[in-house]
Amino acid sequence: MSAVTAPSSAPTMVRKFEKVCAILDQHGRDPAKLIPILQEVQEEYRYLPEQVLTFVATSLGLPPARVYGVATFYAHFALKPKGKHVIRLCDGTACHVKQSIPILEAIRARLGLTETMDTTPDMLFTVETVSCLGACGLAPVVVVDEDVHGQMTPESAVALVDAIVEAEGSR
């Protein structure tokens, strides 16, 4: 595994709130727009930092518990930072009957992830499963960042990971 460089300029709190304010204003600070607001905030920071959630709640005049409730209810919201590359394995019915789990096991083994870990300690990879990507005709499917890879095997999935590791190492 290659070592990864930590984000060199971790955004300062001031800058954090500036972006959040812009997103809030775009939605007219309307509490009904909470979900699109959180989606855009997450797009910006790749996850939902706790202080930002509290800031959003105060700005919208909502109890922080309500915002936290929404953020934890929906699967797309992440409260922990994700790795640089997100590998999503589809475990929908079609992928499942075509043996998606051995692929997951192979990827996790390749990255040395234990049962309680989803992200590698160097923050390079996060591995997660999704219930269906709607690309069932290509089952089993693995999505690396934005790219969909169909008809995978444990070997070809590990090869995908190897290629990223190599590209990251050569940078």
């Binding site: 727009k33 909470l34 979900i35 929906y74 699967a75 797309h76 919201f77 219930s131």
Partner: peptide
């Protein structure tokens, strides 16, 4: 935002309302 239950009518409405 990733919740299967939102396919249910009343849950979907709650989701549009930001809940």
């Amino acid at each position: 935002a990733g919740a299967f239950v939102c396919g249910e009518e009343t849950a979907l409405i709650a989701s549009i309302e930001g809940k």
